[in-house]
């Protein structure tokens, strides 16, 4: 029972991690807390349905198409909304992403309707036994994907020119600019990456929760909490936070009752912030005087 709870918690947590990592990547390169991250994923899920159902594509043809569209959406939002106000304070940027959130919600509701839709691809409900604990096939599939994406990100940041440039922008945008790094392009790339992660979040979550404009709301909140948990600057921190939240809320849901799930996540973050006001791996105090 316990082991099973933990396993499914890790599976949920790895989906939160996709959102949390995207929140961190966007935040640390652009100071934007992106509230539309969940909606990128929601749009991706709807597009997945469109490609699978209306165009009768197969899953592995649909995936790259959805990723492409989702990245385009990220780039579009950057160009149309975020870039014109790029040098205002973070609160303005934050509120602007809320505007994007409303728009994407409205568009999805308008085009596809408010009621939930089943994703055409579902998983076998029969659980498989791994090391003596029972895991559902869907959870296993999702976790495998999440690990792959984590690996891809790791390699990207470690070895590619763009990845290294991105880290340079994170550390110090001014110096990065002086060193000849095209900061604007990197910012664009950052948003594309947010779209990339959102595509996976949407497609992987869709079979579990059904597709609707609100499908990502809760995941977004958890992803945001996980990002803050890790200190908003650290990708490993965000992943760790997401997994911990996934496990903790699953345990709370199992032992206390379903309505304590979200409350558990918030209880964790509030307690953490009380003792570490900049999150687990946050930059605790910078030199100012």
């Amino acid at each position: 029972m316990f082991g099973q709870q933990v396993m499914s918690g890790l599976a949920t947590g790895s989906l939160y991690a996709l959102t949390a990592v995207a929140v961190v990547v966007v935040f640390r390169n652009t100071r934007v807390i992106n509230l539309a991250q969940g909606d990128f994923a929601m749009i991706a899920a709807f597009l997945g349905i469109v490609f699978l159902k209306n165009f009768q594509l197969n899953y592995y043809l649909m995936l790259p198409l959805v990723i492409l569209c989702s990245m385009l959406l990220g780039v579009l939002v950057e160009r149309l909304v975020m870039r014109p106000i790029a040098d205002t304070d973070w609160l303005t940027l934050f509120t602007a992403t809320l505007g994007v959130y409303y728009i994407l919600h409205g568009v999805a509701g308008w085009v596809w309707g408010r009621d939930t839709k089943a994703f055409p691809v579902t998983f076998d409900a029969k659980p498989i036994s791994v090391f003596g604990t029972l895991v559902s096939e869907g959870h296993l599939f999702n976790m495998a994907w999440a690990v792959c994406i984590g690996l891809v990100l790791f390699l990207f940041f470690k070895y590619t020119k763009q990845g290294i440039a991105m880290r340079a922008v994170t550390d110090d945008p001014e110096t990065a600019k002086l060193m000849g790094i095209p900061v604007r392009f990197i910012v664009l790339l950052t948003w594309a990456m947010a779209g990339f992660l959102a595509a996976f979040a949407g497609i992987l979550l869709a079979p579990i929760v059904y597709v609707s404009p609100e499908m990502m709301d809760e995941v977004l909140v958890k992803g945001y909490v996980a990002a803050v948990f890790g200190g908003l600057y650290s990708i490993p921190g965000a992943i760790l936070g997401a997994l911990m939240i996934g496990v903790a809320e699953n345990l709370a849901g199992g032992y206390l009752g379903a309505h304590y799930k979200t409350a558990t996540a918030f209880a964790m973050i509030v307690v953490l912030l009380t003792f570490r006001p900049k999150g687990l791996f946050g930059i605790q105090a910078r030199r100012e005087i």
Binding site: V81, T95, A96, L98, G99, V100, Y101, Y102, I103, L104, H105, G106, V107, G109, W110
Partner: peptide, 13 residues
């Protein structure tokens, strides 16, 4: 309803 959402977002931005 949906249009209201979109308008709200656009107006906000």
């Amino acid at each position: 309803r949906e249009l209201a959402f979109i308008l709200k977002g656009v107006a906000l931005i």
